[in-house]
Design a protein around this nucleic acid. Structure first.
Length: 254
DNA sequence: GCATTAACCACAG
DNA sequence: CTGTGGTTAATGC
């Protein structure tokens, strides 16, 4: 089933269940207008004008620069955060090392499990690129879930997709060895995050290591091995996928 | 045993 | 922050 509504900003057609793309115009900082917001989530789109104005008086926008912490594991959560633009990493300190659990492409809610489950953040979120977010008051958010079934439904849809994606990634991480995991990560960036064969890797080698559960040196080695066999071309942070098929094979065979 | 995989350490741009 | 090389421990054939 396709949702053929067009985004009035970038004119991309939204695929059913997927947030609209947004590549340009943002609301002015500090001047929140939920009614005219260009990056409403599917959930927020189900709200009527009265609910929207309630939302508007209970949320605030903020900007974070590359590398800044949005919230920290162990802190008390006070509001739910909606990422309007930019890329965010969800990470957690494990017993031995830091692990990047997932990358979140905007626009998207983060931190819902914390609000509805444990009040203490069980993980941290940081800006990978410069990021714009909206903070919504927890109680208002909960009230909307209780009162508005459609809103709740969209929220649940989002959480389910997250979980499925996470299961998929878990299998990859657990059953593949390094070459496969890195090939996976490259495909993930190329296909899901940037939707292009040419992109600028926003993570450092060390962060990429945290993402695929490997040391920074190993990441470097595998990357240059992939370059040697003509899979990809690397110039610093610029990555060009030359042979998608080969990359997929490596990803599948581990 | 020998080969492979990947982490750790050290050093150099 | 990155790339390389040497070393080492674990695992597989």
């Amino acid at each position: 089933m396709l949702d053929t509504r067009k985004c009035d900003v970038c004119h991309n057609i939204g695929i059913f269940g997927k947030w609209y793309q947004l590549k340009t115009i943002m609301d002015q900082p500090g001047q929140n207008n939920c009614v005219s917001c260009r990056v409403k989530s599917l959930a927020v789109e189900t709200l009527n004008s009265q609910e929207l104005s309630v939302l508007q008086t209970n949320c605030a926008g903020a900007r974070y620069r590359k590398g800044e912490l949005i919230f920290r594991q162990g802190n008390l959560s006070s509001q739910i955060t909606y990422v309007k633009t930019g890329l965010v990493k969800i990470h957690k300190q494990g017993p031995s090392r830091e692990q990047i659990l997932m990358l979140v492409k905007s626009p998207r809610f983060i931190g819902i499990p914390t609000i509805l489950g444990n009040k203490i953040y069980q993980y941290s979120a940081s800006a990978v690129e410069s990021v714009e977010i909206c903070c919504i008051d927890t109680d208002i958010f909960k009230t909307m879930i209780l009162r508005n079934g459609k809103f709740a439904n969209e929220i649940i849809n989002g959480l389910c997709k997250d979980e499925l994606r996470f299961f998929e990634r878990s299998i990859n991480q657990m059953q593949k060895q390094l070459h496969g995991r890195i090939a996976d990560a490259l495909l993930y960036f190329s296909e899901e995050i940037f939707e292009s064969d040419d992109f600028i890797m926003p993570l450092s080698r060390a962060e990429l290591g945290d993402f695929v559960h490997a040391s920074r040196e190993s990441v470097t080695r595998v990357l240059s091995a992939l370059q040697r066999n003509g899979c990809i071309d690397i110039k610093g942070k610029k990555i060009h996928v030359l042979n998608h098929y080969l990359l997929q094979t490596i990803s599948q065979k581990g």
